[in-house]
Simulated scan of single mutants.
Amino acid sequence: MAVVLFVIRSVFVVVWILSGLLTELLVFPLLSHRWRQCVVGAWSRGLLALCGVRVRVLGQPLRKDPGLWVANHVSWVDIFVLNCVRTTSFVAKSDIRRWPVIGLLVAWAGTLFIDRGRRHAVREACRQITGCFQQGDVVGLFPEGTTTEGLDVKPFHSGLFEAAVQARVPVQPVALRYLRHGRPAPELSFVGEQTLVANLWVLLGAWGVAVECRFLPPIVPDAESRRGDLAGRCHALVQQAVQSS
């Protein structure tokens, strides 16, 4: 049954991905920033529906005005999950840009790529994040710097929190949990040496998949805020939510 489900979903997902790439090439140049965000949000919801992934939103996400969402990182799916809640500009490692197909899609979704090997990479990323804040956007950040199985949370890198501190925009911790029939599902994570094809085989052949997004109370930086302290507070809140749910 899993094989049949995988084949059926794969056909629809491929068609949906092609439609997204064509939209980027032919339609996006004609749209305003606001309408691009609407298209990306609708497309992300369609993608997850075709993949058989339900999104459960808990808490009160920032729906308006600029902000920084900081979440634990489990899979390539995370970007599209958060886009279902509110279209988001993401910060991701530059090597994701080179992933087959997915790299094109996350770039289309408004991802800001950072090359951590460059000397001034963090400074440049903060400048781009500030530009997003000035447009009224929410920016998504995965400060672990890598994916995990979703059962624990690695320490948060603090560098990019500086943009929120300087702009005095709210920082909202977000805990992501991948579930299958209501239970934690580490097999859905995209970690280690697993290939994208192998991950899709598990995801598209599975029933009862849901991603729980728990939006925790925002933290508003003030004149005394330090990025390291802010990152530590967010990490503690996300870790507690992931482990206690």
Rank of each mutant, 00 (worst) to 15 (best):
E162V: 03
V242M: 14
V14Y: 09
A185T: 11
S75E: 03
H73M: 07
R123H: 14
G136Y: 02
L204Q: 08
C38Y: 11
L188H: 02
V77P: 02
Q240T: 15
Q37T: 05
W16P: 01
A206F: 06
L204H: 03
R116I: 08
R233N: 06
E187Q: 11
L112H: 10
N72L: 10
S19P: 00
I129K: 00
A175M: 04
S94L: 06
H235W: 15
P66K: 05
F12L: 10
I219R: 08
S189T: 06
P29C: 04
V7T: 13
W207V: 03
G232P: 01
L200M: 09
E24Q: 15
G41A: 14
G150Q: 06
V15A: 13
V153N: 04
F156N: 11
V57H: 12
L196Y: 09
L204M: 05
E24C: 04
V13W: 01
W76N: 07
G228E: 15
T147Q: 08
E144H: 00
R233S: 07
Q172Y: 11
F28E: 11
D222F: 00
P184H: 02
T111R: 14
G110S: 03
R54N: 11
L200D: 10
V106M: 08
A107L: 07
L176E: 01
V7C: 10
V197S: 12
V153F: 05
D152K: 10
Q135Y: 06
C38I: 09
Q243M: 15
S94P: 07
L200R: 02
R123D: 15
R177C: 08
T111W: 02
V106Q: 08
L188I: 04
E193W: 03
P186F: 03
R214C: 12
N199A: 14
H157S: 12
S94C: 12
F133P: 00
T195F: 02
R36Q: 07
D78M: 03
L160T: 06
V122C: 10
L151W: 06
W201G: 02
E212W: 07
L82T: 10
I114T: 09
T147W: 10
Q194C: 06
W76L: 05
T147D: 09
S245L: 07
R34M: 04
V174L: 08
W16H: 15
L50W: 03
L48Q: 08
F12I: 01
A206K: 00
T23F: 15
